[in-house]
Simulated assay, not measured.
Amino acid sequence: MPSFPRAHHDRHVLTSTVDVFGTAHWLLADRAPQPGDSLPFEALVVSVHPGGDVELTELSAVRARWPHLDRLPDGGFVVAASRARRYEDADQVQVFDALGRETSSFSVGDAIEHLLVDEVGSIWVGHFDENPAGIRRWDSAGHLSWTSDDASIPGLFDCYALNVSGTTAWACPYTDFPLVEIRPGRTDRPVQVWTNRIRGAKAVAVHGERVAFYGGYGEERDRLSHGEMTETSVAPTAVGLLTLPDGSLPGFRRVVGRGSRIYVQAQPFTAWGAFDLSS
């Protein structure tokens, strides 16, 4: 899996992600954010493609100290502040072109838990419990194109897990933790819901009728639970632990769900590993 190039180890990693096409990205600044730092600042995105090729993109005038990052299909990037309170609404989400120039900005609302771009450039946002908006989809110009408001998703107070692959999203939200499939372009049943007994998962992977949930509460934070989708529910089939290649547990980590894969990045956040449900 992609590793962070050593040539850039002197820079501070603000965040990192894996896009819908399997390319890993690291957003870098000269140093860690400090109270009282002035905004905006210059940043660098280091992209490592699945074949190992490295690409650098300088972003001008980034305004999010603790950002989310993802790449658009045209080669541009989306950078978003997870909290909107300290920013002007119009500045929360910045869209940059492939040359690193800001082309638009807009707000998607406070309390971003997940921000993932799909293969056609739609921006999926899952909120945590300080924003009741749930799950929404935006285009890169800031127009809202789908919302969970009328989707009848039970207990959607916090989007614990969000997986975006192709143009489909899968979610596992608090408090009821159902498995939810969202296909806004489908005219019949754009949202499907399966009841689920696995609580607290922070990432989900789906392959055919098989599903895996990663994470949980307390001692179950590294739990990997497998299940099979029936007509109305997820039937548990196995449970274990997700470990790093050396056999250790990830501990504090970042996770990204993309289709059948759960990408995991443990400290010091210089490499991504992947669990693939299809293998």
Results as ranks from 00 to 15, higher is better:
G75K: 09
S233R: 14
T237P: 09
L179V: 10
G208Y: 03
A98Q: 05
T243D: 01
F177H: 11
G257S: 06
L249P: 04
A80G: 02
T15N: 06
W170Q: 05
L28K: 05
E55W: 10
A141I: 05
P40M: 01
F252T: 12
Y160L: 06
S152F: 10
V79C: 02
R83E: 14
V204D: 00
G142E: 09
A90W: 14
D139E: 13
S279I: 09
R65V: 04
V191R: 04
G75R: 11
S225R: 10
F275C: 02
V125P: 00
W272K: 00
L59W: 02
D70T: 00
V93I: 13
G240I: 03
V206T: 08
R210L: 13
P73T: 04
L249V: 08
A201H: 03
P245E: 08
D222H: 15
L27Q: 03
V180Q: 02
G36Y: 02
F77G: 02
T103Q: 12
R136Q: 15
L115Q: 03
A90M: 06
D110G: 06
P2A: 11
V255P: 04
G22Y: 04
A64G: 07
L156I: 07
T57L: 13
I153P: 13
M229N: 05
P245G: 07
R83M: 13
S3Q: 14
S145M: 15
D30L: 09
D37Y: 11
H226T: 12
L39K: 09
L224Q: 09
E119L: 08
A201R: 01
F77S: 15
F157H: 13
A111R: 11
S122P: 00
H49R: 15
T167R: 15
D19I: 02
A151Q: 07
D70P: 01
V117I: 13
P33E: 12
Q94W: 04
R189M: 08
V193E: 08
P236W: 02
P154K: 08
D10P: 08
T147L: 08
R197K: 05
T270W: 03
L144C: 12
L27T: 07
V93M: 09
G109M: 05
A32V: 07
V45D: 00
T147D: 13
P5T: 03
